[in-house]
Write a protein that binds this DNA or RNA. Sequence first.
DNA 1: ATCTCAGATTAGATTTATTCTAAATGTAGA
DNA 2: TCTACATTTAGAATAAATCTAATCTGAGAT
Lengths: 137, 137
Amino acid sequence: MVDPSVLLERKGLKVTPQRFAILRFLQQTEDHPTADQLVEFLNRDLPMTSRATVYNTLGTLKDVGLVREVTHEAGVLRYDANIDPHHHFICRTCGRFDDLDWNLFGSLDLQPLAGRYPQIENIEVIIRGVCRECQTP
Amino acid sequence: MVDPSVLLERKGLKVTPQRFAILRFLQQTEDHPTADQLVEFLNRDLPMTSRATVYNTLGTLKDVGLVREVTHEAGVLRYDANIDPHHHFICRTCGRFDDLDWNLFGSLDLQPLAGRYPQIENIEVIIRGVCRECQTP
DNA sequence: ATCTCAGATTAGATTTATTCTAAATGTAGA
DNA sequence: TCTACATTTAGAATAAATCTAATCTGAGAT
């Protein structure tokens, strides 16, 4: 787990308390929080981060590639500090959102796409279903 | 292309002019329109469909499985009458949204997931990049 | 030390997509 | 025709995200 300050500096961004806290929280959680959940968490003890800053910061972190936007649910925008390629499982019942290992499916062969789509930047498999915890036995 | 009336009746839904028009439009377009684009189109010539009805109808069509919600863009919800499994390409520049053939990647082996995720309902590969038309040569 | 200025943060207003509500309409069957 | 229920409707309400204009902060210059 790299120090958030180092990551921010590498990207030429000033290290502010808000940026530090947001990036560190995203690094540490297994989850994929929404902007709103971030506001909630950051201000739980000591309110020091406005809603607008959370949106601004998530935007800049996304622009420099420190954070990914995850947009696989209706009306909800989530954020992920795991920027290595990986896949996702989404539970229809509880909304649980798991990262899945990139190598799960072996190597996806993109050859058939190369002609029609000359510039491919990201590939991701999305699996939807009901997770073990939500099974009704 | 199956008659929308037949599809609606099979699902036990009353055939109304609005439902018919919405389903037929989704069947005929290559695109993945938003609710707003549907309202716009349906009322172009003769206004006869309210915004609420478009949302209601899309909701019921989704519930009975005649239509799929596509949720891969921030803040935008699109609809697709192609309910056979398939993949998607999304252009970062123009937002273009193409269906890709299900067999493009051969068969995805789900065996490694079976233990952890007992109930898998849908799999989809999402490819993001820049389409041929948006290339700057 | 203090000044300056660009960048960062802020509260609150605004915009946009979606959902809700309660009334009006349409339709199938008695 | 009458009744009952589903559907549609306009407009209000909600929620997420963006915008705005003012304030704050801190690193380098003086």
